[in-house]
């Protein structure tokens, strides 16, 4: 399995070598902040996973043992690399209208691997840049949702009493309305063309289930022997929360986050399809589907490509999430 680790690295090096001349583009594009964010967040996530399993290298190889996990990591790795290095790999700017007169809705060809869209933009480039936007939204919104959800869940689980009562009824209210409804109301009425506000809104509507999960974990851990013992030793409550409880709720949170990114990508796509998600000219997978859905008969490939990209990404994330679940908390592995 050791060789597996080198696959994404090799791919990356190949890319850099092939397009070495354009490495400068990466730094000069205006969207550098976003690509750094994407790269950073993924590195962070990888680091967390790494740290959790590093002391036992055999665990790592065990983790990647199942065939589907290897495929999923490869797919996800490739998509991430393509996303981060989109300015180099794309060949065209995603918003450039190449030839308005003769270049509209061209079917896939060598020059345009995925064809062109209704204003002659190169779909390959748009899907690559769309990957950045979709993944960025996924990662940032989930990071936010997880942070809020963990804090709320810990507070509810640990303090109990009226704090728990109030917080959990809020969570009930949040969960009793379909998420798409919340998002439709907020995004359409409060109106935004700013992608970061969209991320904020998706994050703010996504923490309810995490807090429920965290609360249940805290309730369980609170009664465990080592916590009772720590309390007996006179360790402060804050100390118990930070030292004893938090580390123990991290594994389920990581699983939750991995699956959550996929869900956010789906939610973003749905919102964009209804016209309330990412606003043009930003390409996200959802907006590309929306553009294409207006030409589904004339140019079915426009809708197909980003849809497949979404499904691949979300499947890969789900496989990895499942695998993390079995590795990190084997106790619950039989459950969902």
């Amino acid at each position: 399995m050791r060789s597996f680790r080198w696959v994404p690295v090799t791919l990356f090096v190949l890319f850099v070598v092939v397009r070495a001349g354009r490495i400068g583009d990466l730094l000069s594009t205006g969207t550098f902040v976003e690509q750094t964010l994407v790269a950073l967040t993924f590195t962070l996530l990888a680091a967390i996973i790494w740290l959790t399993i590093t002391p036992w290298p055999e665990v790592l190889s065990k983790f990647f043992k199942p065939f589907d996990v290897r495929i999923a990591s490869l797919v996800l790795g490739a998509i991430m690399i393509l996303a981060v290095f989109a300015p180099i790999a794309s060949g065209h700017h995603p918003n450039t209208q190449l030839d308005l007169v003769n270049g509209q809705l061209l079917p896939p060809s060598l020059a345009h691997p995925f064809g062109t869209d209704f204003v002659s933009r190169d779909l390959w480039s748009r899907v690559l840049f769309g990957a950045r936007v979709s993944l960025m939204i996924g990662v940032l919104a989930v990071t936010m949702a997880i942070t809020i959800g963990t804090m709320v869940g810990m507070a509810a689980g640990y303090f109990g009493g009226w704090v728990e009562l109030v917080l959990m009824r809020l969570v009930d209210a949040g969960l009793s309305i379909p998420r798409v409804f919340w998002l439709l109301v907020i995004v359409s009425l409060w109106g935004t063309t700013d992608i970061y506000v969209l991320i904020l809104i998706i994050g703010l509507t996504g923490w309810f289930s995490t807090s429920r999960l965290v609360r249940a974990e805290v309730l369980r851990i609170r009664e465990e022997d080592f916590v009772v013992a720590a309390r007996g030793l006179g360790i402060s409550e804050a100390g118990i929360v930070i030292r004893q409880i938090l580390p123990n709720v991290v594994p389920p949170i990581i699983v939750n986050a991995t699956l959550g990114i996929g869900q956010v990508i789906l939610v973003e796509a749905g919102l964009s399809f209804l016209g309330f998600g990412v606003q043009p000219p930003w390409p996200s997978w959802g907006t590309i589907i929306q553009d294409g859905s207006a030409r589904i008969i004339a140019a079915p490939w426009i809708v197909t490509v980003p849809g497949v990209a979404i499904a691949l990404t979300v499947v890969s994330l789900a496989i990895l999430g499942d695998r993390l679940q079995t590795t990190l908390n084997p106790r619950d592995s039989a459950q969902f």
């Binding site: 859905s293 809708v303 849809g307 789900a318 496989i319």
Partner: peptide, 14 residues
């Protein structure tokens, strides 16, 4: 898993 990961409106379009 694939069904679970497919955007529902996109599946409808297909």
């Amino acid at each position: 898993l694939t069904l679970h990961s497919t955007p529902v409106f996109w599946f409808g379009f297909m």
